[in-house]
Structures are given as structure tokens and as C-alpha cells.
Amino acid sequence: MNVKTPSKLEKILASGQLAVTSECGPPRGSDPEGIIKKGTMIKEYVDAINITDNQTSVTRLCSLASCIRLKLMGLEPVLQMVTRDRNRIALQSDILGAASFDIFNILCLSGDHQSFGDCATGQNVHDLDSMQLLQVVRRMRDEGKFIGGEEIKRPPRMFVGAAANPFADPFEIRVPRLAKKIAAGAEFIQTQCIYNLDRFEEWMKRVRDRGLHEKVYILAGLTPMKSAGMAKYMKNRVPGMDVPDEVVKRLSGTPKDKQADEGINICIESIERLKQVEGVRGFHIMAIEWEEKVPEIVQRAGLYPRPVV
């Protein structure tokens, strides 16, 4: 097994087994209880847990502190890091901070625009973009150097990931963009939530055509729908989200009290179908504020128990 970091996630992927990750959003307060509870709830069922970094530009408890919490509980956190809020000094410093707590996974993102969040009139930084951040982390790890070229005393050891959205526009550069992220240093990819499986498969085909699935571990992103209303919202309001009409129809056609169950069913069916897609190396289950359903999904999708490495 050829691994570059102590990351458990990397080990599972490298061993050729399907990986399962999930995510937790930190609370909008200083009470760590929420994280602890969520972590405890799903720890048996996933290989690693992403902690979001002020998602949708709403100010929350910081990702780094939350990751430390999980680490202290013995779990495997994935530190999400957006380039929106910090310049290159802060980014590098936080990476070192995370590494000091032996956080071995990082997901490099640019982040939602601040206008969506609670500080819409704020300034964004974007000193770097996500691709440049990928390069920075890889350079810090592999060459042991800061951006400025100076040596790092104890370089961070992090398994480096990036996000990919197969559904955003322009479609023709979705695969080149993935290639670019790989070239920038991404080792694993977590995708945007997938509802349009046909389009995802088309994207994966193009990924395979370029042999990119050999160069990166792709984890298919999934978010179970709680209701028909949520489906409609995701379809119409969330930029870069592709929810086919059939999904909305299927949920609308289900009685209100059964819609949540139907949402779980859809999610599980999707996993079953995606397992067949060559190049899909695992699943990233983002049950937004619905973490209690993760165990059920993992179990019913035949992904339980999780391997031990």
C-alpha cells in the first residue's frame, strides 16, 4: 500500500475499498456539545468527517477548533478551508496549527460568496483561489516549504482534497477543471451532491476518458432530501445544483409524512447505482442537519461495517 500520509481515509482508499465520509456543520456559538454529539452519532459508520468552514458564508465556530475536538475524541476529521476569509499568511498558519494536532486531511475550497451569508457587506479576501491553495498545501507537505520558499521545520502531513461540481456551467470545462485541480495537487475529490445521475455518469465517462480516475480518488457526494419543498429549493435556489424534475415529482407524489423516508430511499438507490460506476471510490454523505440518518443510510446501502485499517 502506497500512502503519503498517516490519513486513515487515504489508507482505506489506497486499499481499494469504498470509503465513506460525512460532514458536520459547527454550531453558531461556542458550545462544542453539538459537534461532540454529531461525531458520536456517526463515528461507527464513516471513515472521516468533514468540518465545514463557515459554510454559505454564515459565521460559525471555526473549522479548525471543531476538527481538534473530533481528533481529541479519536475521530478522523477533514479540515475544510476556504480562501474567502484568510490571506495566504493565515491560511498557512492554520494549516500548521491543524498539523500540530495531527489532523491529516484537508479539503481546499474557495467558499461561497459572502453575499449569501450574515456578513453580506463584508469584504472577501481570495488572496489565493482553491487551486492555488491545493498547490500551497502540497508544497508545504512535499517540499516542506512556505509560499515564500523558506523551509518548514516540521512540515504538515495532510491528505489533500478538493471539491468538484459536475453540474455547474460551463459544462465543457467541468472535466478540464478537475484535471486542473489534480495538476494542482488534489489527491481526493468530494463532489457536489448528485441527483442527476445520468449527467454525473456522463461526467465520469469523460473523467475516465482522460484517465483522471486513475489519478485521484473520487467520492460521490450525496444529500438525502427531507421533503419535496427541499427538493424544489435545491433545484431553483441553490446555484450549481442540478435536481431533475423526476426527483421533485417523486417526492411531491409521496404523502408529506413519508417524504423524508422517500428521500432516504432515493439516496440509497443512488448509492447502489453509483457503486457500479467505474472510478467512484467512495461516498461523501452530507446529511445537512440530519446526521442521525447517516447510520441508516450507510447500513441500508451495504456499506456497514466500515473496514479497519
Partner: peptide
């Protein structure tokens, strides 16, 4: 809107920026 230098973010939809439908996605 995010002065991204290596490509559009995931919010680019139908040629428009995620922050406004009246704004072209530069990428």
C-alpha cells in the same frame, strides 16, 4: 465576484454568477 484565477466556482449557472442572475460569470 471571488476574483478566482483558475476557473469558475461551483455556483456558475447558465453563464451567470451565483450572486446575481444579472451578472455574467466572468469565467
Amino acid at each position: 465576484a471571488k476574483r478566482l484565477m483558475n476557473g469558475p466556482c461551483g455556483g456558475s449557472t447558465k453563464g451567470k454568477c451565483e450572486i446575481s442572475k444579472d451578472l455574467d460569470c466572468a469565467w
